[in-house]
């Protein structure tokens, strides 16, 4: 047999056929069916993985949303904040809400005299 050329780019059909015979895997149909059946399981598993991957941030996000919503609702329904308590000076300086009637004031002044 002739020594092959080092840069021979053509396939050697005799050798190729002999090797093909050695490596022949037989009927492809059962193999294909097996792969496709497993592929279905992989798809299901990958969906599960996607859901699992999203589950943790999803739960965290839901928790944050519910806490925020609770806070906002609670704040809206709670009593308004208590008014700032006036100091003594404020009370003394501030004009009375219902000034006394002039006749009563005068009568009391006259009565004293």
């Amino acid at each position: 047999m002739k020594e092959p050329l080092p840069f021979d780019h053509r396939p050697d059909t005799a050798l190729g056929d002999a090797l093909r015979g050695v490596l022949d895997p037989g009927d492809a149909a059962p193999f294909v069916a097996r792969v496709l059946a497993r592929a279905e399981q992989v798809r299901v598993l990958s969906w599960d993985a996607v859901l699992a991957r999203w589950a943790r941030p999803g739960v965290a996000a839901a928790l944050v949303v519910s806490l925020t919503a609770g806070y906002l609702v609670g704040r809206a329904t709670a009593a308004p904040p208590a008014a700032v308590r006036p100091t003594v000076a404020d009370i003394l300086i501030a004009p009375p809400a219902h000034p006394g009637e002039v006749e009563v004031v005068l009568a009391s002044v006259i009565g004293n005299n």
Binding site: P11, D12, T13, L15, G16, L19, R20, L23
Partner: peptide
């Protein structure tokens, strides 16, 4: 060699 001579 398998890829070259068997699979082309």
């Amino acid at each position: 060699v398998v890829l070259f001579d068997v699979e082309g």
